[in-house]
């Protein structure tokens, strides 16, 4: 006897796990670059985040007797994004604690995939940043064990305390100029996955080509951030140089935030106009934090504040049904 069900009877081939796999692939260039620049210790942080995230999700679903969801790949993505946002110098319990917080508190306790009100990885990073500012926020590892001291240092970075240095974003805030090409390539201090604008863009283009993200969110977010930074500098009589503006774009977490975090499906609006409002808003917040805040960075906070406003934004941007447009009733 043939199956019975109501239409439609066919399904497209795309699965949630395919999307997550594509995001994972897109994250690889930035993460590989992080390991390349910050040494094997960065790899260990990445692996710790990934393993702890997946394990936390597995254990929670198992203990709560819920359907197992590890295979959809979303926990892995969360782990990788968290690792991307941590400096390679953190003690090893930091990635473990952050991953447990991201998956258990932010994701699973809110109902699991698709139900969280904030991006789990970003919320975990902010939690770590507030709780352990000295470990997560300051003392970014300096670049270049591999370039300066050769392979031995690259490997031994695992055991010795890495040299720390000011991030280029901090230098910009302090009124210095930065080497934009170095910044674009990612040869500077910072978090594991955020330094190389080039590597992030490669991942972003891959996701665009695979239809995982649309250019709308990253483009508007970047434009809004730079626009508001320029505006704030103009009204506060700060020196506004091209080096400063472009530097804002290629240093710090802005590019990683725009490509991988603001585009998170669950925590960004599903309506077209909602996405525009959301991006302008988080751009405004990023600019506010970066120009007027005490820290040089502001992307994470801006995005998670934006995340919490998404239900409201969606409520006011429900599109008019077909044929209800243009005032016609």
């Amino acid at each position: 006897m043939a199956n019975l069900s109501t239409a439609p009877h066919i399904r497209g081939g795309l699965l949630t796990s395919t999307i997550m796999r594509d995001v994972t692939i897109a994250l690889l260039p930035a993460l590989v670059m992080g390991v390349f620049v910050f040494g094997l210790r960065a790899l260990l942080v990445i692996v710790l985040c990934a393993v702890t995230s997946v394990l936390t999700e597995y254990l929670y679903r198992r203990l709560m007797k819920l359907p197992q969801t590890v295979s959809d790949g979303s926990a892995l993505v969360t782990g990788l994004i968290l690792a991307m946002n941590l400096p390679a110098t953190v003690p090893f319990w930091i990635p473990v604690m952050g991953s447990v917080f991201a998956i258990l508190v932010v994701k699973q306790l809110f109902g699991g995939l698709g139900q969280n009100i904030m991006n789990p990885a970003l919320a975990a990073r902010c939690f770590l940043l507030i709780s352990f500012p000295a470990l997560v926020g300051a003392g970014m590892p300096a670049v270049g064990n591999l370039f300066r001291e050769g392979a031995w240092q690259f490997v031994s970075g695992l055991t010795v305390d890495a040299v720390t240095g000011a991030t280029p974003l901090q230098m910009l805030k302090d009124g210095q100029t930065v080497d934009l090409l170095q910044a674009f390539l990612g040869l500077h201090s910072g978090c594991i996955g955020e330094t190389s604008t080039l590597a992030i863009l490669v991942g972003g283009v891959y996701m665009l080509c695979r239809g995982v993200i649309s250019p709308r969110i990253p483009c508007i977010y970047l434009a809004s951030t730079i626009g508001f930074i320029a505006l704030f500098c103009a009204v506060t009589d700060r020196a506004l140089t091209a080096n400063f503006l472009v530097g804002q774009l290629v240093t710090g977490g802005l590019m990683a935030g725009a490509v991988f975090m603001a585009t998170d499906y669950t925590t960004s609006p599903i309506t077209a106009w909602g996405q525009v409002i959301y991006c302008v808003l988080i751009g405004l917040l990023t600019a506010l934090f970066r120009v007027f805040g005490s820290a040089a960075e502001g992307v994470s906070y801006a995005i998670i504040i934006g995340n919490t406003l998404v239900p409201l934004i969606e409520k006011v941007t429900i599109p008019r049904a077909f044929g209800k447009r243009g005032g016609a009733k």
Binding site: A2, R11, T16, I19, T69, G114, T266, I270
Partner: peptide, 29 residues
């Protein structure tokens, strides 16, 4: 039967349905 091949899983709010709907509705909501 492709319907029987897959069990529904959680909505990830990817918005593909929103971009597919010819009536401009919001299927997740």
């Amino acid at each position: 039967d492709e319907v029987a091949m897959w069990e529904p899983t959680a909505c990830i709010r990817c918005g593909r349905c929103v971009r597919a709907c010819p009536e401009f509705l919001l299927p997740p909501m």
